[in-house]
Amino acid sequence: MAEFRAYVALGTAQIRSAASYRASFLVELFGNVGATVFDVLTVLVLFRATPAVGGFTLREAILIVGISSAGFALADMLVGNVDKLKTYVRTGTLDAVLVRPLPALPQLLLMDLPVRKALRVVFGFVVLGLAVAANDVAWTPARVLLIALAPLMAGVFFSAIFVTSASLAFWWVDSGEIGSAFTYGGRDFTSYPISVYGSWFRNLFAYAMGFGFVAYQPALTLLGRDDPLGLPSWTGFLSPLVALVAAVIAGVVWRSGIRHYRSTGS
């Protein structure tokens, strides 16, 4: 409980710090919505050219985008700034975090909590809401549970990807933007029906790395559609399990990374 109070204090301090630069805070708050608008626009534009992609109509595809971008926006706001780790590792700033009596990861996340990304999360969930309304979902208790869980689990999954790819910096200080290939690349991958991808590429990212279970399979289950790729309908409910596995892996990688931290000269 005392620890929770400490986290709250750190979080509110970050909000006050950000608010001390009021003009740029407001500009960024609204500017950030733009990014998510473009994710959705890309899909809309694609469907202007063709009525169906990978066997899916626009309405169906928007549901996939909705789950993916709501989850991603959530992860990006809460965890996305773990990305700054490479700067902290390079400059040795992480030292200051490590000598405080709290675990390092939550501290880092709260130190940088980008409140300005809040509107993006709202926008992501609005898109998801519209997508659900646009499709004729035959509601059952299981599907209600699934629509509540899917974006949250997508958030957990993307958070795990953020943490894992940021941890690269512990071993490889100049990891640069390689991590983005998995975070932003992963988001783009999950925004489309996976039936559009080539088979080895799909096997690797969708099944082996689990991106297919984040938005695509849950969307199929919600829509009550058969998978053109042949997975049974219950695989839509695998998203919490896949998210959990990803989170565990991220945790292990992070802990091992911290032990490899080299700090800087002085």
Binding site: R5, A13, S17, V99
Partner: peptide, 30 residues
């Protein structure tokens, strides 16, 4: 149980008044 001052690293919150940094540390260290 220890206190650390790294001359070249700050434990304080850059954008907040000193008083608030101290208040925050009270929560961080319970």
């Amino acid at each position: 149980r220890i206190g650390v001052v790294f001359g070249q690293r700050s434990q304080l919150w850059w954008d907040l008044p000193l008083r608030e940094s101290f208040a925050l540390l009270r929560h961080v260290y319970r």
